[in-house]
């Protein structure tokens, strides 16, 4: 298998946006690497390694979110306080809003939005990574973008909120 190190910066960027937290993101990347190495025989030579890593990461993250939701009630006390976002830039407030808005999206919509926009994946590749039909990618992308508009107040005056049909 080719060197995984070259893929780390992009994996970290995606994980940071997906989890909204530096430490959770790096833990997720580490879990992804460990699983990938443990299952390297399942990687099909010739297929894109980075896509395969993203698939592993997505499945791990979805399972974590599900497990977390299941235990949310009893674990509430143990949750670490939300680490403060790095507020270094002048648009820090905007970044924080963006982070909060992203986290308000359902995981499946967030993943599609981030793969298409931040990671610049084609719609077809996004479908392959998430193992869903391209049509589902498009509908999730529509919902994610509209929801994000509402959350960021960007489109409030432009159009009434669309009723999203599942």
């Amino acid at each position: 298998m080719e060197d995984l190190v070259a893929h780390l910066p992009r994996l970290r960027r995606y994980a940071r946006a997906l989890t909204g937290d530096r430490h959770l993101a790096d833990d997720l990347v580490q879990d992804t690497l460990e699983r990938a190495l443990a299952r390297s025989s399942l990687w099909q030579r010739g297929s894109r390694l980075d896509s395969w890593l993203l698939t592993i990461m997505h499945n791990l993250f979805v399972n974590q979110v599900r497990a977390h939701a299941r235990h949310a009630t009893e674990a509430l006390d143990e949750l670490p306080a939300e680490p403060a976002q790095r507020a270094m830039q002048t648009d820090a407030l905007e970044v924080r809003d963006l982070n909060g808005a992203l986290l308000a999206l359902p995981v499946e919509q967030r993943a599609v939005l981030l793969l298409v926009t931040l990671d610049e994946r084609s719609y077809e590749e996004t479908a392959r990574i998430l193992d869903i039909p391209v049509g589902t990618v498009m509908s999730r992308l529509s919902r994610a973008r509209e929801r994000l508009r509402q959350l960021l107040d960007g489109g409030v005056q432009a159009a009434p909120a669309l009723k999203v049909v599942k």
């Binding site: 995984l4 946006a17 990347v29 580490q30 926009t117 931040l118």
Partner: peptide, 27 residues
């Protein structure tokens, strides 16, 4: 604009040094 915001917010991660534990895990 959303896409530009996402890149502005998260592209700096690409420039961060990768933590040693992740390089170790990858190798």
């Amino acid at each position: 604009r959303q896409k530009e915001l996402l890149h502005a917010a998260f592209d700096p991660v690409l420039e961060e040094p990768v933590p040693a534990r992740l390089v170790d895990a990858a190798r």
